[in-house]
């Protein structure tokens, strides 16, 4: 049994060593990769029956542009986010924990569809997740 445990640990640690050699921005495929990802993600969110309605009045082209900047900046890419602050843009929506998770699920599905490596998906998601406190219940 203990040998089994050791073996599993070794596997986990092995997986550990193989990441982090490229910047997240590069792993996402640079500007073009991020544009593609955001294109898919906005479409998924917009089509999601659970939250799509929230975007009924939204200028999707504008949203995509801001999201590309934001994701690029979060991934340490050469961009500057020029949109509203997270609390300001989501204020009045009183978004719930559930709605945030559904957005995350759509975003994950988009990252999968864009063919991003799982570690890159998770690194980006971890950075987006840190914004939750500024987005829900505003």
């Amino acid at each position: 049994m203990s040998r089994l445990l050791l073996c599993a640990l070794a596997l986990l640690l092995g997986a550990c060593a193989s990441t982090r050699e490229r910047s997240l921005y590069a792993q996402l495929g640079g500007r073009a990769g991020i544009e593609r990802l955001v294109m898919i993600a906005v479409e998924k969110v917009h089509d999601d029956p659970r939250i799509g309605e929230l975007f009924a009045q939204t200028d999707l082209e504008y949203l995509r542009e801001r999201l590309v900047e934001q994701v690029c900046q979060l991934a340490d890419g050469p961009c500057e986010y020029t949109g509203l602050s997270m609390p300001d843009t989501h204020s009045g929506m009183n978004l719930s924990e559930r709605e945030f998770n559904w957005f995350v699920e759509d975003f994950e599905a988009a990252m999968r569809e864009a063919g991003l490596p799982l570690a890159a998906q998770n690194r980006l998601l971890a950075r987006l997740a840190r914004l939750r406190g500024e987005i829900i219940r505003q």
């Binding site: 986990l12 640690l13 092995g14 997986a15 550990c16 193989s18 990441t19 490596p117 799982l118 570690a119 890159a120 998770n122 690194r123 998601l125 971890a126 997740a129």
Partner: peptide, 10 residues
């Protein structure tokens, strides 16, 4: 739970 934990895995 760490989203990007061991090996970038949850």
């Amino acid at each position: 739970l760490w989203i990007a934990g061991i090996g970038g895995r949850r």
